[in-house]
Design a protein around this nucleic acid. Structure first.
Lengths: 278, 278
DNA sequence: AGCATCATGCAGGATATCCTGCGAGTCAAC
DNA sequence: GTTGACTCGCAGGATATCCTGCATGATGCT
């Protein structure tokens, strides 16, 4: 039973003080969900007791239950995606494709909420300004890094892949200088060589950019700039590279958009090159 | 100071248990704002104490302060999300990220309409039944194929990558037999070697599967089974691998789901299962 | 192996939050 | 004016929530 219907159902027995409380409760829902009985009462200019008794009048065992109900309602109201997800999984059970699409969509919605365009701008500028871009990725992240590298090459940027282990990376890192950028793609947990690479970058004055998921903020040492968003299905381990892939695409689009003149001509030159080979 | 920046700033001092808590905190923000220290700790599978101490490490006087900070940020974030959703129509404000997310979402919705789960089932069975899977991909499709190969390897399947040009491919194709499957990832236009590969496969009796976009139906000779969906942003030069990537993920999920003792319907349960393979 | 350092869990106390018995005040009916 | 019904606030107890000292165990270094 919804809070509103409970209120209507009990409206005859409500006092003036009760109505004051309800006014705050419904009028400031977004904040009210966090308030204790005393805080709520203070906003409504009534005594704390009134809050407790109102909750009981409305059929709850006490104030905390009332608040929990309000929390549920507010969350559902705002999470339209959740509502959709429920109905879909109910209709199309056994359809992995439909389920997957649904969860990817909500992951993308979450992405838009997690990262601001300004952060993307910063990342784009860092890449565009770099003399060379060293891309570090391991495991599943290589799928994203391969894509990124191809695109940056198209933009006529110089990229260096850091894919192997220890030694291989160290060798390729020797030339790293202060005009270069180290771009790390890492998910789930901090890669073994992460600290060493970041440490070296800091030492030679290279800039650092980390694209990650929830593990991003915990990696140490921290990168100069971080783009991180949860990769779908909070709590579960099932995660696809869709979200980081989209982050990368947003960066690429931004580079293209903000530096259109240069990029476009590079692409045209490339088209000529292709023609000559074909 | 934002919670995220505090986490980054303190990342050196964070323990494994701390990270678990942070994962829940950020991954399930919407719900975490309501949880008590004990409830949060339970979700993160750590002791309540950890929550308290994490809050102090991050510079709060205690857990309640941390939660209050999270509440503030979530509330602001929701305002921001609402603002963004409202201004989605006018993309001119330079928010490439928001625009991109929006178009990816509609591309995914289109995908769910274009491909039926039964087609995914067929593809999954073909892959699972194959002795070896030969994966052919070129250009941007390699990003997807690399991902697919990694996953199939985790399923303990035998994969062979066909990536190079002409000669390289021919050499690796010599062993192709009738128990094998040729899986082609190709977008935009038919790759140069496509016809040769498909021809050879037909000759030796190998099965063929094509994952593609709008160009798929026009490729000749046709593959035995085709999974194709438009990749959004029709007409634009910039196309992302999100849709084919999601097709591949659906296939992988289906394989995992159909060949596991227990029949699982929920994606949550599948996630665990999938993780066991991954 | 031995030691130091640190992370983690436990137990108990401190605090915040909530509930309830009691009484003062208000109002209307008689 | 008295009574009764009701609202509201207070105070104290009950409970939930949180914090901290201590012990244990893990880890790493010498």
């Amino acid at each position: 039973m919804t809070l509103l219907s409970r209120i209507q159902h009990t409206s005859q027995k409500l006092t003036a003080a009760d109505r004051k409380v309800i006014e705050v409760l419904l009028g400031q829902q977004a904040e009210a969900v966090f308030l204790s009985a005393a805080q709520l009462a203070e906003r409504a200019q009534v005594h704390e007791t009134t809050a407790t008794r109102l909750a009981q009048k409305l059929g709850f065992s006490g104030y905390p239950e009332l608040r929990a109900q309000l929390q549920r309602e507010v969350m559902e109201g705002q999470d339209a995606a959740a509502r959709m997800r429920r109905s879909v999984s109910k209709v199309a059970d056994g359809s992995y494709l439909a389920d997957l699409v649904q969860s990817e969509i909500s992951a993308l919605e979450q992405l838009a909420r997690s990262i601001d365009q300004r952060d993307v701008d910063t990342a784009s500028d860092m890449i565009f300004a770099a003399r060379r871009v060293f891309i570090f990725a391991q495991g599943h992240a290589t799928a994203v890094s391969a894509f990124l590298q191809r695109r940056l090459d198209r933009f006529a940027m110089t990229t260096v892949m850091l894919t192997g282990r220890g030694r291989d990376i160290a060798e390729r890192l020797t030339s790293l200088g202060q005009d270069d950028l180290v771009l790390v793609l890492a998910f789930r947990k901090q890669p073994t060589d992460y600290a060493a690479i970041m440490g070296h970058a800091a030492q030679v004055g290279a800039r650092t950019l980390l694209i990650s998921d929830l593990a991003g903020p915990t990696m140490t040492p921290p990168a100069e700039h971080l783009l991180a968003a949860p990769r779908g299905r909070s709590g579960t381990e099932f995660q696809t590279p869709i979200v980081p892939m989209t982050i990368v695409n947003a960066i690429l689009l931004t580079i293209a958009g903000r530096h259109e003149p240069q990029i476009v001509t590079k692409l045209e030159e490339l088209a000529d090159l292709f023609d000559r080979f074909a």
